[in-house]
Computed example of a mutant assay.
Amino acid sequence: MIKDLGHGYKIIDNKFILCYESEVFKKFYKTIDFETFKIAATNEEHDRDGFASTIYFTDKNHVYIQSAFTSFTIIEDAKPDDFKIIDSKKGYSFSNGNYFRHDDKMPFDLSKARHLNDYHIQVEDKLYFADVKLIENVDLESFVIPHPELIENLAQDKDHVFFKGKIVPEANSKTFKVLEGCLDGTYYLECDNAFYAKDNQYAYFIRTISDEVKVIKTKSLNDFHFKVIDERGYAFDKEYSYYMGKRTKL
């Protein structure tokens, strides 16, 4: 017996699950109720082959998610009988009195939230990064995202520089600035995710897809600058060139 769930998924004899002829979700077979397992919803964006990058499944006991952001898993504390998609593109859903972002339970009422950009969200007197991580020791009155579209996960207040919701301990917020050469629209490889900055003490390499900001302790900070050469972005001081944060003696 074959039960076609759609989007390439099939249940065979209520014993195993295929996705385009490859077996999937094996470690959940003891949990899944095959009789009631189905696709509850997908995200709205599909590629040319009809593949949905986020799919929600339910059975009589659980809500499951399979997405580009998480492997197949149970959304804990979500219930199949009242599960609702709030925003399929952002991965927001609601069930059992809780809001979820993908498989993470959100620590606030999403209806009271204000999105500052795609990464920062304010809920009353608290600020969160990526919807679930509380940003600590932040001054909301002075909080800004200097480049909200280009460098979405870098922010500042009067006392701190924040990267991905965490304080960059070495950075001086009062003097910290991304180098203008990275921002003037000149094309270079990785121009959408690799940047240099400096304050009155250090220089910095920021790669938005990395976990932290790299501190560059140059001896000639005043001369630290950025230049595009052959479509590659380099920083320079008097002694070194820096490509993707790695230095080479001049």
Rank of each mutant, 00 (worst) to 15 (best):
Gln156Trp: 00
Asp104Pro: 05
Gln122Leu: 11
Glu124Met: 10
Lys177Met: 13
Ile121Lys: 00
Phe195Glu: 05
Asp131Glu: 13
Pro148His: 07
Glu141Gln: 11
Asn96Ile: 03
Lys133Pro: 02
Glu190Met: 14
Glu152Phe: 01
Ile135Gln: 03
His160Ala: 02
Lys164Met: 10
Phe94Ile: 01
Phe100Arg: 01
Leu189Ser: 10
Glu149Ser: 06
Glu152Arg: 11
Leu189Tyr: 13
Ala194Tyr: 09
His102Ser: 12
Lys177Val: 15
Leu134Glu: 07
Cys182Pro: 01
Ser95Lys: 05
Ser95His: 08
Leu183Cys: 15
Pro169Thr: 02
Pro169Gln: 05
Val123Leu: 12
Lys198Gly: 07
Asp184Asn: 15
Asn172Met: 00
Asp103Gln: 08
Gln156Phe: 01
Asp125Phe: 02
Tyr188Ser: 09
Ile206Arg: 03
Glu170Val: 01
Asp118Glu: 11
Ile167Phe: 13
Pro107Phe: 11
Ala130Met: 06
Tyr187Pro: 00
Leu134Ala: 11
Ile167Trp: 14
His120Trp: 15
Tyr119Gly: 02
Asp139Thr: 05
Lys174Thr: 13
Lys164Glu: 12
Ala194Gly: 14
Cys191Met: 11
Phe163Tyr: 13
Tyr204Ser: 05
Ala113Gln: 12
Asn200His: 10
Val144Tyr: 07
Asn172Ala: 07
Val168Trp: 03
Leu110Thr: 06
Gln122Thr: 13
Tyr196Cys: 11
Lys177Ile: 03
Tyr204Glu: 05
Tyr188Val: 06
Phe129His: 04
Thr175Asp: 13
Ser173Ala: 15
His102Val: 09
Leu140Phe: 08
Pro146Val: 06
Pro148Asp: 12
Tyr99Asp: 03
Met106His: 07
Leu154Gln: 01
Phe163Leu: 10
His115Asp: 14
Val178Glu: 09
Asp184Leu: 09
Pro169Leu: 01
His120Lys: 04
Asn200Asp: 15
Ile145Phe: 01
Glu149Lys: 12
Cys182Asp: 15
Asp159Ala: 07
Ser142Asp: 09
Ala171Ile: 00
Ser93Lys: 01
Glu136Trp: 09
Asp103Glu: 11
Leu183Gly: 15
Ile151Cys: 05
Glu180Ile: 12
Ser95Ala: 08
Asn96Ser: 08
Asp118Lys: 05
Asn96Tyr: 05
Asp192Asn: 14
Asp131Asn: 10
Glu170Tyr: 12
Ile151Tyr: 02
Leu127Met: 07
Tyr196Pro: 06
Lys164Gly: 09
Lys174His: 13
Lys105Val: 11
Ala130Arg: 00
Lys166Glu: 15
